[in-house]
Design a protein around this nucleic acid. Structure first.
Length: 439
RNA sequence: GUCCUGUUCGUCUAGAGGUUAGGACAUCGGGUUUUCAUCCCGAAAACAGGAGUUCGAUUCUCCUACGGGACGCCA
């Protein structure tokens, strides 16, 4: 355990967004990398805007991402409470001292901190030394008696012995206020690391809660793999400096450091995120793919597909390499369960050139005489047939896929046939013949 | 407006005072006698502009332009 202590200090005033998740991630990674402590502190001093739902969303999404905190809500710790709304006496204590020392004065009912008039130098790990003069006194307690962000933020970081403040660059300008506060409180300032912001995919400005794709919730609802989101987010503003991109959590932790973080803002790219999700999906251990897949089917109300676990497992096995996201899973495997699966018109169009009626009846004959029905057997049968008729194998393959699934995309055909079994395949061919008009 | 901050392919990034400026996503093209949303190969694609330092700058300095942020009794 090192003495590094970092914190993520969100205010629960809306849904948890990507920018916040990335900030939390960088803090968490740094804690993991250094063997330090990751603190979660809830900045709920604005009672008007805080909601219970936001807090729940925040906590559950952090957990979904796997960003567990060592100290904070629901886990406790030596420096609690971790809700600012419960730390009023702590702030009062420090306020009293500042007043006693004459560093604070009252005006219009609010309490103002006297600034030093000296240029502050922010010791920023990413940007280097940044100098800024805080010219005007500023409010630290509102006229309604509640403390403002800058004050509680600094008091808490001090009280909680935070060693590294890792936060968005939008706070860089605020930091001169914070340095004034540290000085007034007689406490040494922590190190700062102001990380670049995440900008909208297109258009000007930083990503906001209103932008499409900006909420962690959205990815969770679409059954993204948390490790993929983590991987993608970690590469926004940071890189391992070699050409690695697809990385496991452990690899990221090992390589992560504050010093390597970029100064430039990054634009959010959903396409690359999807790509990474697909890659992580492919690499999932079979067991985990199965577990997650079942959860997806439950949540999408396909629980009736879960009855035959052996069958389901076979399907998952042949589908994993082709699937790009769990969101597509139900549709991707629907025809395995729906005996009356639809024959897609566009798919039909693509096979018309193969004269499907003839091909299917030839397949009926060839397949029905097979004594056994494994991948190899079927493959041989198809190849023999195409050789006999002097037709490309594709003519049979495409037609058959269409007949048994109604589509022209899907898992490896021979595996697909193997999973369905001989009787079902023949039944499906017959149904196709009876249902489809090949004119 | 003031202050802070930044600027390498469309996007995420690597890079070093002298490189064919590398990788990834996306795009386009080709291939795998199983289509494809898999896999493989290939192509196109960038150092914002101007001075200065230097034998040499995309890399260092300055200026300009453009981008982003902060300037609240929000956090």
């Amino acid at each position: 355990m090192s003495d590094v202590r970092v914190r993520f200090a969100p205010s629960p005033t809306g849904y948890f967004h990507i920018g916040g998740a990335r900030t939390a991630l960088f803090n968490w990674l740094y804690a993991k990398h250094t063997g330090g402590t990751f603190v979660l502190r809830i900045e709920d001093s604005d009672t008007e805007r805080n909601t219970k739902e936001s807090l729940n969303s925040l906590l559950s999404n952090l957990r979904w991402l796997g960003l567990n905190w060592d100290e904070g809500p629901e886990v406790g710790g030596a420096y609690g409470p971790y809700f600012q709304s419960e730390r009023g006496d702590v702030y009062q204590k420090h306020l009293k001292r500042l007043r006693d020392e004459g560093k604070v004065y009252e005006k219009d009912g609010a309490l103002w901190l006297k600034v030093s008039g000296e240029t502050q130098t922010i010791d920023d790990i990413i940007h280097g030394p940044v100098q800024r003069l805080e010219e005007k006194d500023f409010v630290i307690y509102r006229s309604n008696g509640t403390p403002v962000f800058h004050f509680v933020n600094v008091v808490d970081d001090m009280e909680m012995h935070i060693t590294h403040v890792i936060r968005g660059e939008d706070h860089l300008s605020n930091t001169s206020k914070h340095l004034e506060l540290y000085k007034a409180l007689g406490a040494p300032a922590p190190k700062f690391a102001h990380i670049p912001l995440i900008l909208k995919t297109d258009g000007p400005g930083k990503m906001s809660k209103r932008d499409r794709g900006s909420l962690v919730e959205e990815y969770r609802d679409k059954f993204f793999i948390p490790a993929a989101l983590i991987n993608y987010l970690s590469l926004l503003g940071w890189s391992p400096k070699d050409d690695r991109e697809l990385m496991s959590l452990d690899e990221i932790i090992a390589a992560f450091d504050l010093v390597g973080i970029n100064k430039t803002h990054a634009r959010f790219d959903e396409k690359k995120l999807s790509f990474m999700n697909a890659e992580h999906l492919k690499q999932l251990p079979k067991e985990e793919f199965f577990t997650r897949g079942i959860e997806v089917l439950r949540k999408t109300e396909h629980a009736d597909w879960l009855k035959d676990e052996v069958y389901l497992k076979k399907i998952f096995d042949i589908v994993q390499e082709k699937l790009r996201s769990f969101e597509e899973l139900p549709n991707f495997i629907a025809y395995f369960f729906d005996k009356n699966y639809p024959f897609e018109p566009t798919a039909l169009q693509k096979i018309l050139k193969h004269q499907p009626r003839e091909r299917l009846s030839e397949l009926q004959t060839a397949l029905s005489t097979l004594p056994t029905f494994g991948c190899e057997v079927v493959e041989n049968a198809l190849k023999t047939l195409s050789a006999e008729k002097n037709l490309p194998a594709g003519a049979y393959i495409h037609t058959l896929r269409f007949a048994v699934s109604g589509r022209n995309v899907g898992p490896s055909l021979y595996h697909l046939l193997d999973v369905l079994g001989k009787d079902e395949v023949l039944r499906r061919i017959q149904r196709c013949l009876a249902t489809c008009s090949f004119a």
